[in-house]
């Protein structure tokens, strides 16, 4: 438990390096919701291979690292209703807002984007209230 923050920092640095590579070489903002969303609604089909290559990288590296760990458990709830509701909210919300934790959070705030700060404040606030209500009030998560 005490070393979690070190892994968090190290992993964070890797995430930032990924974003830096995507920006400096490909000239694009590394936002997961935008990269996926552009494929889903068709708005980014002209760059589909670039998007797919990125997503393959995201998917593949954890598979490579997985054997090095004794136990990896994402602790995903088995409550299907929660998963469906959460997925819909995340899908619609990130596309309306044009970004998620990576695009508005990591990429936006690091260039001091006002929209990045406002978006991040909003989703952390809503997430915090959501956890408060659904965990401590209703006890469903």
């Amino acid at each position: 438990m005490q070393v979690d923050w070190i892994w968090g920092l190290a992993g964070g640095l890797l995430i930032g390096i990924g974003g830096a590579v995507y920006l400096l070489f490909n000239g694009r903002i590394m936002g997961a919701s935008g990269i996926i969303g552009g494929l889903v609604d068709g708005s980014g089909l002209d760059t589909k291979w670039e998007r797919l290559s990125f997503l393959v990288g995201v998917f593949l590296l954890p598979i490579v690292l997985y054997p090095l760990y004794r136990e990896v458990n994402p602790h995903i709830t088995d409550n299907l209703l929660i998963l469906v509701a959460a997925g819909l909210f995340v899908g619609v919300g990130t596309r309306l807002a044009n970004g998620c934790t990576s695009g508005h959070g990591v990429c936006g705030m690091s260039r001091l984007s006002l929209r990045g700060f406002v978006a991040t404040a909003c989703y952390i606030l809503a997430g915090g209230i959501g956890v408060l209500i659904f965990r401590h009030l209703f006890g469903v998560i």
């Binding site: 909210f89 990130t94 997430g127 959501g130 998560i141």
Partner: peptide, 20 residues
């Protein structure tokens, strides 16, 4: 931006998952 991010936050908190 505001409504979308609030919606995203609710989903993020509910499942503990974001797109990446």
């Amino acid at each position: 931006l505001v409504i979308g991010s609030l919606m995203f936050g609710v989903g993020w908190g509910l499942a503990g998952l974001c797109p990446g």
